[in-house]
């Protein structure tokens, strides 16, 4: 997801204000067991789980605080969380 923001730039030479769009690319944040990492490309949740060696039986994927299935494609700017479901001792 691209995040567009208009930033007012003041030209020191002329004193005129120029308005031009500046493009920021937001990274995707991935949180698991209290650790947060950033990822820069869109990716399917199941691929992400494979890359991070996350067992689907042990963690539930959430994107932007909503439960999703493993085929969900996370985009830049998304907040991905893996919620651990195993408890007990």
């Amino acid at each position: 997801m691209l995040f567009l923001s208009a930033v007012i730039l003041k030209s020191p030479a002329t004193g005129f204000d120029n308005t031009r769009p500046v493009c920021y690319e937001l990274a995707m944040t991935i949180e698991c067991d209290g650790k947060v990492i950033e990822y820069n490309k869109p990716i399917d949740i199941y691929r992400l789980m494979e890359q991070l060696s996350i067992n689907r039986e042990v963690y539930l994927p959430m994107v932007n605080d909503r439960l999703v299935t493993e085929d969900y494609r996370a985009e830049k700017g998304d907040s991905v969380k893996f919620i651990k479901v195993v408890s007990g001792g």
Binding site: V58, L60, L67, V85, G89
Partner: peptide, 28 residues
């Protein structure tokens, strides 16, 4: 456990997510 955790999340049940500190290394 996975289904129950999903049920809790979908019903906005506010449960403790931290593990009991004494369960670390438990055989179970």
């Amino acid at each position: 456990e996975r289904d129950i955790a999903a049920y809790a999340i979908l019903n906005n049940i506010d449960y403790i997510r931290e593990e009991c500190p004494f369960s670390v290394g438990a055989k179970t």
